[in-house]
Design a protein around this nucleic acid. Structure first.
Lengths: 225, 225
DNA sequence: TCAAATATAATAGTAAAACTATCATAACGA
DNA sequence: TCGTTATGATAGTTTTACTATTATATTTGA
């Protein structure tokens, strides 16, 4: 890697930008591991502070509460996915090919690399699978939505939906189909692992490849004229 | 209504069957209103007990904790939907028609009737929209799944998937498509209301009709041979 | 019908969660 | 070096999520 990358995130996502300090980066890095390990419900700032040798009060200076921290992490993830889609579809004009690349990227198993030091992409992806819906399934969704914390997810949805519209301008549900598939992309992995009767994806085989096949099938069939 | 109906639910869903006592029925009835009003996160047995003029300890005799109560309510809902599908598809042999009826029923706005006294179906449906995913998005999902608490949802999924298989035996993803659509059925209503850029469904118009059109489109297109 | 079983209520108590506040000190930047 | 800012240390509050005990009311069944 020649350039170190940094994600540009909406400032409504934090009280203090965690990317600008040592403690902030530690909070983000270790929260990913801790949430993955014990689950979001059991996760507390107290436990996190012990983990990183700091204090609760210090963490509260970065994030209003643990829910906001989760929203930050999930938002980081969707930003990352969109960044990769933009990168991989660069110079490609065929909308079908762009859509295939996007489906590949939203179903792909992430591997850790060092382009974003301090973030374990693979563990973060696990958090997306297990916890991401909790970012918006909350009583104050309208309030935090006004602040723009879901902008990254919406933008990704818009991008993918635009490929669908290019393929078939008459298709009536590009955004719905995109959000349904973005959700299904992690839902099906969850079901395969925990509630296998809700899915045809077999945990024993290559989950991500099957997921790609599944989503491609329903997307391209739905888009047929 | 000639007969009073009672839902037959898995006994793993409760410590003591709430349908067998006055207090139990009050717990179920009032919890629906309270969860809808303040959201599951803010909901506590303390608040519920105040509401119904009882005590925390008494409620704990019916449900291990508030999560189990939520699982009970959501399970009741899916059982109800499957009961209605079974009823409405009775004597119909055409799988396409059965599937259409099922899609209609999972996207339909429920109205309160008195066939199940003490349950407000319409408010319960709101809870499904806002909270149902929290039943399984929990660290102990495998543990509670072993007890069979998700049997109702799986059974519904199986039923609808079987219609798909009848229509096209070669379709590879009947269960996945069903679970994706069952989830999308409430997800899209949520998005229309709170995150409209993630959906093509317009909150100003008939949300349920649009949802039916959307799901029909992707399901029947996916099933085409 | 009376005794026994069972359900509910009343009360109390605990550990942890989810914060908020204050003050001292360390580091950093102009 | 002086002032600002970040962090740490400490303490305190309210609420949540329980558990335990005892008293009283109600049901049931012998």
């Amino acid at each position: 890697m020649i350039a170190k990358l940094q994600m540009q995130l909406n400032s409504a996502l934090y009280l203090r930008d965690p990317q600008t300090s040592d403690l902030g980066q530690k909070i983000v890095k270790e929260s990913i591991f801790l949430i993955d390990k014990i689950g979001f419900e059991s996760f507390t700032f107290k436990k996190l502070s012990t983990q990183i040798g700091s204090t609760e009060a210090s963490i509260y200076r970065y994030f209003e509460n643990k829910h906001r921290l989760l929203v930050y992490l999930i938002s980081w993830y969707w930003n990352y996915v969109e960044y990769r889609i933009t990168f991989e579809t660069h110079n490609i004009s065929d909308p079908e090919e762009k859509l295939r690349i996007a489906i590949r990227l939203i179903t792909n198993q992430l591997k850790d690399d060092d382009s974003f030091p301090g973030i374990s992409e693979s563990v973060l992806q696990q958090i997306v699978i297990n916890e991401s819906d909790k970012t918006y399934l909350t009583k104050n969704v309208d309030e935090i939505n006004k602040e723009g914390v879901f902008r990254g997810y919406k933008s990704l949805c818009e991008t993918i939906a635009s490929y669908m519209i290019e393929i078939n301008p008459d298709f009536e549900f590009p955004r719905s189909l995109t959000s349904t598939c973005l959700e299904a992309a992690h839902q099906q992995v969850f079901f395969a692992a925990h509630l296998p009767r809700l899915s045809d994806i077999k945990n024993a085989e290559d989950v991500h490849e099957q997921n790609y096949q599944y989503l491609s099938t329903i997307i391209f069939n739905s888009l047929k004229k």
